[in-house]
Amino acid sequence: MWANAVEVEAWADEVTMDFIRMDPVQSRGMVVARVTCSPTFLRTLVDKLEGVWQDWAHAPEHQRILDRVRADLIRQYEGRRKTDR
């Protein structure tokens, strides 16, 4: 499964996450997986993902990737600000 977007719905006793593969050319996507879990399990998942992210982000070989992501986010933000004026 490959996804590049997610939609999350939350209720008192469950959380549903739809993982979506977006097509950048056609600006549409398709759900490639749906996961429904308890809020307790979601907290466990978030904790584990945060640990994995910290390990990945601090690896020297990933710094160039993070620098590109930061630059892209800044360009997107600045582009939105120009169109909002």
Rank of each mutant, 00 (worst) to 15 (best):
Q54G: 04
W56N: 01
E61D: 12
V32P: 00
C37F: 06
C37V: 09
L42F: 10
V52D: 04
A59C: 15
R21S: 04
L49G: 05
R85T: 06
R70A: 13
R34S: 04
T16W: 05
E14R: 09
V52P: 00
L45H: 01
L45T: 01
Q76W: 10
W53V: 10
C37Y: 03
P24D: 09
T36E: 09
D67Y: 05
R64S: 05
G29L: 01
S27R: 15
P39T: 05
R28F: 07
Y77K: 15
R28M: 10
M1F: 10
W2I: 09
G29N: 01
K82E: 04
S38T: 12
G29I: 02
M22I: 12
A57V: 05
R43S: 09
E61P: 04
D67L: 10
D84R: 13
E50S: 11
A12S: 04
Q63C: 14
H62D: 09
D55L: 13
F19K: 00
W56E: 00
W11A: 02
A57M: 05
V32M: 03
E50T: 08
D13Q: 02
V6F: 11
D18A: 13
R28V: 07
L42W: 06
Q63W: 13
L73M: 14
V46N: 06
T16G: 06
S38I: 10
D23F: 12
S27I: 15
S27Q: 14
E7A: 13
D72A: 12
T40E: 11
R70S: 11
D72V: 12
R80D: 03
T36D: 10
R34L: 05
W11Q: 03
V8S: 04
L42Q: 05
K48F: 08
E7H: 15
D67C: 05
W53A: 14
V46P: 01
L66I: 14
V15L: 06
K48D: 08
R43E: 07
M17R: 06
R81K: 15
L73A: 10
A71R: 05
D23A: 08
R85I: 06
R85F: 03
D67W: 07
V15M: 04
D55H: 12
G29F: 02
M17A: 10
D72N: 12
D23E: 11
L73S: 07
F19I: 01
T16C: 06
L42Y: 07
V6S: 09
R70W: 11
V69W: 14
D18C: 11
D55I: 12
L42V: 07
M30S: 13
D72I: 11
S38R: 12
D84F: 11
D84K: 10
Q26R: 12
V31T: 13
R81E: 14
A3F: 06
L45I: 02
V8P: 01
D18W: 08
E7M: 13
T44M: 13
N4F: 02
F41G: 04
I74R: 02
F19S: 00
L73W: 06
R85A: 08
E9N: 06
L49V: 09
G51H: 08
V8K: 07
G79A: 15
E78W: 00
Q26P: 02
M22S: 07
A59D: 14
G79Y: 08
R75M: 15
V15H: 01
R43I: 07
C37M: 12
T44S: 13
D47M: 08
W2G: 03
E14W: 04
Y77H: 15
Q63F: 13
Q54W: 07
P24E: 11
A3R: 00
R85G: 03
V32L: 03
